[in-house]
Design a protein around this nucleic acid. Structure first.
Length: 105
DNA sequence: AGTAAGGCGGGCA
DNA sequence: GTGCCCGCCTTAC
């Protein structure tokens, strides 16, 4: 399976109202060293709705990028109850899905 | 095939 | 806590 497909498949598992990070997704794929490549894969964004790329943020709680613009990313998150304030996800620790949780989905 | 760029992370000052 | 710099892996030219 291509790397990017595995990224998309994992990302699709993140439930609404929760988020994960590029690093956590990377770890689930074998190691945090893949984190950058995860961003690249999501950037292709093949299925705008099927794959909730907007639920993947940076490891420090900052939002990170989005192919259709960060503002859009923030808006989509807000619709799901994830509020972004001052560039960071509020209540980050509780909304975050770690790599082992991802693996168990 | 070489190279540069990209939705990042971690470590150190 | 902040900022910088270096390393990493995958893709696109």
């Amino acid at each position: 399976m291509d790397f990017s497909k595995r990224v998309l498949r994992l990302t699709a598992l993140i439930p609404p109202g929760r988020v994960s990070t590029y690093g956590e997704v990377a770890k689930a794929l074998g190691g945090v060293r893949f984190s950058r490549a995860v961003g690249v894969a999501l950037n292709k964004n093949p299925h705008p709705v099927k794959v909730p790329c907007h639920r993947v943020v940076r490891s420090d709680g900052r939002v990170g990028g989005y192919s259709s613009g960060v503002a859009e990313k923030i808006r989509l998150l807000a619709e799901e109850g994830v509020i972004v304030g001052d560039g960071k996800v509020l209540d980050f620790g509780n909304k975050l899905i770690t790599y082992d949780e991802l693996r168990r989905l």
